[in-house]
Structure formats: C-alpha cells, structure tokens
Nucleic acid binder design. Structure first.
Lengths: 211, 211
DNA sequence: ATGATTTAATAGGGATCACTATTTTAATGA
DNA sequence: TCATTAAAATAGTGATCCCTATTAAATCAT
C-alpha cells in the first residue's frame, strides 16, 4: 500500500510517511511558527526543493503532518469512546488515553493539536483556523457521544451536551498545556478523576462538602 | 510616580507604560514568536534603538509586558479569591472574572499567560520557562486558597488540594484556548458552572445520573 | 547503449529577523 | 550663549526566513 509501484525516473530518497513522521514530531515540539523549513529539511535529510516538491509548502506540510499524526491516535480513541461501555467509563478511558499521549517518554509533551497555534502572527491566521477546526471537530465528537448517552438514558434528557463536551474539551486542552509545562502522567490522571465527578443533574450538598 | 522628574537631555517621546501597554496587547494577540520587533516599534511609533534602550531586548520587553498586563488583573482577582466568601462562591466569581477577561470586546481573545509559548523554537526555551513559571504560580495561589479552605473546615481534611488546584488550572487554560478559538463569554460561564460541580468527597450515584 | 522520465542537488533570491554603531536633535545648567 | 547631557533618528549589520530557477543524477523502456 505504502510501497509505490516501480516507475521510470530517479527513485525517491525519502519515504513520504517517514517525512511526515519527522515533520509531525518537529511541529509537535516547536509549533508551526517555531519550526523552520531549514529545521524540517535538515531533520529529513533532504534539500529544500525536495520538501517543496513532496509537500507543496510549509503550511501544506503542516496540514499533512497533522493528519498523519492524528490518524495514528484516532482509531484507538474512537473505539474507546464509541464502545458499549457505560458512558462515564468510556469517557474515563478516553481521557486516560489522552493523558498517556500527553506524557509519552520519547515524544514531545502535550497534544499536537489541543494547544497548537493559539496565538499567531497575522500571516498565519489560516493555519490557526485549521487547528481550531480540528479542536472543534474533537468537541463535536464528544457532544455526539453525549447525545447518544442521552438517547440511551445514561444522561438526563435535559442535559446540555454541548457545554458538557466543551467542559471535557477544556480538560483535554488544560492537560496538554500542563503536560507542556512538565506535568507527569499521574498528575493528569488525578486531574481527570476530579473532572469525572462533574456531571449534570448533580448538586452539591453540605453533607457532601463536609466529607 | 509615573511622572519622571524633569532632567537634562532630550525628553522621552514615548511613556514607558504606554509602550508596555502596546507591547502587551501585541504579544497577547500574536504570541512571543508571532510578534516581531518591527511590529512593536511600528505600533509604538518609535525606531528600533529606542525600543532597545528602553526595554533591553525583545525577551526582556516580553517579560516587562507580561508583568504590566498581569498587574492590571491581579489586584481585583486576588481580592475575589482571598475574600471571606464561601470557597465555592469565591472560586466561582474568580473563574467568572477570568472568563470575562478571556472575552473582552476590544481585546485579544483568551489569556495572555494561560496559553502562551506552549510550543516554541529551542532558542526560546527561556521564554517558555518564564510563562510556565507564571502559570505554576497561579496554580499555587489556588492551592493555597484551597489549603485555607481545608483549615477553615470548608473542604474535607483529606482533600488533595494540589490536584484540585491543577484541575481548576486546567479549566482556566482550556477556557483561554477556547476563547482563542472563538468561544463567547456565555459558553465559558456555562463551562465553569459544570466545573464547579466537581468537588472532592463526592461520588456519583445512579440516582444522580438518572436525573 | 540511448533517450525519456522523474527526482535530487546546487545555488541563491528577496524579504524579514533581532539588533546596533553612529549621528542628530532637544532639553538643562552655568 | 554654549557646553553638557540624554534621548531619538539614520542607516545599516549578519543571520535566517520561505521558497525556486536551474542543473545533475538515477532509474526504466527501447
């Protein structure tokens, strides 16, 4: 599949997916504005014209590198979230998986998407719109799962699923930021455990607060 | 205080605080790496040597602009958090104030500190450490307030105040990220209302979930 | 082997980066 | 008045930014 059919002409020296993997890692660690095309070509072991003929432009490469990086996580996380486990359990495993992704030993800290290109030069507005759209998609996926939970009676009928999704989206973004700042896996999971106690239809009582 | 004593020599054309205000706004909107010294000098109406004689370097200016921007909010927010209101009420008002700051009409979106310099080029590592330290300070302030609440019997004695502080820190960072992506004030406040239902010593029950 | 085809490498372009040596201007003090 | 002082303006620095016109190299089909 990845192996292209032998054609005429000089063979490619760099596999496309290898290049995307290298780019994804650099962009993940340094961000879009913090990664130069010279960084990218050097890490890939190619010259600038090769980068442009393979990927089009820095922005186009970033888009492809994001797709490549996301594809690796999507399948597993989607299975977790869409499973038939009780919604709180599915959500818990989903968030734990994200916490693991934020704190992998030999990978950059945090999430490649959650905290990317939040501030940016005017000329990079289109890149920021791209990452914002990816984050919105992720929130809508959560919302859709909560909507299903409402339909299946796991959540109250009047649940504000949009806000609930944005709340857990905020948790995901906050975890990424804290991982960038050095938080460890255990800290993020303790944080998740608190977040999972937030649930619609619940009200605090004096009894709860005193224990 | 701000008005300097008349001295010999050519008078300053730009007030220091006016310059810091302009710099804070630019850095807030575009981030450290997304703001060039040319952007800064143009916005301030000065030439490069004036910027460097007044502020030292781009990094030093960023530090001063952050201090300047933070000082404007600190007093009011500290009063709210340290007030004698019940802890949940104080926390609620504190978070609402942050949500307001994230969505001011004529200001950049989000928080100047919460989501700044999370990804960065290697050469800007010291700038990233600076913003990370500011975020850690903010979390420790929350923790200290929760510790006080434990002492005063408002929270259970065995409360993990560090994790609770990091949880609300994550909410603050997530709100900033979502504000950058276009979230409105009301959305952030609904999100806060969910976050405030998370509280130690509480466990979900089937009864709670079915309503 | 030769030509066609496809990719890689060389070399550099124009713009912008953070920053500064030098000169000029505008105030005060004597 | 006129030297002294302090800040502003001029006019750049070398480095790096993203990107490309051109040339060289490596393969396949004949």
């Amino acid at each position: 599949m990845t192996e292209a059919i032998r054609k005429r002409g000089r063979p490619r020296a760099l596999d496309r997916d290898v290049g995307l993997d290298i780019a994804a890692r650099l962009f993940w660690e340094r961000g879009y504005e913090g990664t130069s095309t010279a960084d990218l070509t050097k890490a890939m072991g190619i010259n600038p014209p090769t980068l442009y003929s393979m990927f089009g432009s820095k922005e186009e490469l970033y888009r492809q590198a994001l797709d490549f990086g996301i594809a690796r996580e999507t399948s597993r996380r989607s299975k977790i979230l869409q499973s038939d486990l009780p919604i709180q359990e599915a959500l818990s495993l989903y968030l734990y998986d994200i916490a693991d992704g934020d704190t992998q030993p030999d990978k950059p800290r945090g999430c490649m998407v959650s905290t990317a290109v939040l501030q940016h030069a005017e000329e990079n507005a289109s890149v920021a719109r791209m990452t914002a759209a990816l984050r919105e998609t992720s929130i809508q996926t959560l919302k859709a799962r909560f909507d299903r939970a409402v339909e299946e009676g796991e959540l109250p009928a009047r649940t504000d699923t949009d806000t609930l999704a944005r709340f857990y989206g905020a948790i995901i973004q906050g975890m990424s930021a804290q991982a960038c700042d050095g938080a460890c896996n255990a800290q993020l999971k303790r944080l998740i455990d608190i977040a999972l106690t937030a649930w619609p239809g619940k009200r605090r009582t004096a009894a709860e607060n005193s224990d």
